[in-house]
Design a protein around this nucleic acid. Structure first.
Lengths: 185, 185
DNA sequence: GATAATTTTTGACCTAAATCAAAAAATGAA
DNA sequence: TTCATTTTTTGATTTAGGTCAAAAATTATC
């Protein structure tokens, strides 16, 4: 869904508001595997996934580890960069061909000033992110590899269709070999 | 620090604003070990820790597991209850004698309406929470028990002084026995 | 201060999952 | 369709950290 339609599905915009928002956002396309943001960037850009599938990742001891998967109709940005002016560990990569609509955090603030009811939408988006992080944390803290895979199957079966085994394994905090063995059980 | 002073350390309040805020908040004290909120509550109350030390916890297979530690001058509430009207897995317990200032989420919305510049403070508090969750997640995803303890020592040495070994161990996602062995290394 | 209750440490053993390595399968390119 | 590259599976081995149990130390209660 386009960003503007996503917003309009939550609140009513005047024509002028719509033009204002469009003037502050840019839409780009990426190919599968493209890096949208490198790790250690301090970019304060917020991305909305219009179409496709992406992931946040980081590199640790030479290993590529998936931090988060991102579906269409979701937002992503670096909390470290935007709120703490610090480089983020996490890069952003297209898992498949991608259409993104992006805007600067500072411009978001201008939009919220002009269209105050959008602030609540932003608040909800932050809450969604907290909930996802929190659920994921719960999943990993004391569950076996099998349990982790099971709840992935249950909650995000669609992700498994889009993504290589290695990316899922590191997301679940297990090795690729272990995940492979679990799947063939 | 008192909630009102915490707010005033970030922005200027008129006398009227201050009275308004005070009229919507309540301060209570708790003893070490007291349960402030039971797991599975749907309470939409936001707590500010004025003095003392607390933790979020949950129970899994009969085991008590620490989800998060909470220092003074921090806020805590259930994202599930407030934003998704769902019961939260997590309870809230005083790790030591506690003074809390509490207010309802709905009343926070009234405060933000009246004092719009407070909205940014709330936004920052949500961002802080995301950062903490995110850092904690990073810690647990692919680090050894030793590494987890080390970064705890480095980043939150104060927590270790306040809290029993078992509570710290479950927070780090390891058993109490393992943590004990690590400490005596 | 003695006893009870809780918390922490130590020990022996076991298991889930990591590591290393190589084969098989799938995907892509020429 | 063949060859090259990447991804997934399978196998053998190792190990970090879990489990169970009991002793020691600390803290709380009468």
């Amino acid at each position: 869904m386009e960003l503007i339609n996503y917003i309009k599905s939550h609140l009513t915009l005047t024509n002028d508001d719509e033009l204002f928002i469009n003037s502050m956002t840019q839409t780009e396309t990426y190919k599968k595997g493209d890096i949208i943001r490198e790790p250690y960037s301090k970019s304060k850009v917020i991305h909305f996934i219009h179409q496709g599938f992406a992931r946040n990742y980081y590199v640790k001891n030479g290993k590529d580890i998936t931090y988060f998967f991102l579906k269409d109709n979701s937002f992503t940005f670096s909390v470290d960069a935007v709120y703490f002016n610090a480089p983020t560990k996490y890069g952003l990569q297209a898992e498949e061909d991608l259409i993104l609509t992006s805007f600067k955090y500072d411009d978001l603030m201008k939009m919220l000033e002009r269209i105050p009811k959008m602030a609540h939408l932003y608040e909800i988006e932050m809450a969604k992110f907290i909930k996802q992080l929190s659920d994921k944390y719960y999943l990993i803290q004391f569950q076996s590899a099998q349990d982790r895979y099971n709840s992935m199957l249950e909650r995000y079966p669609d992700i498994l269709l889009h993504v290589s085994l290695g990316h899922v394994a590191s997301y679940l905090g297990i090795t690729q070999e272990t995940l492979s063995r679990i799947r063939t059980k």
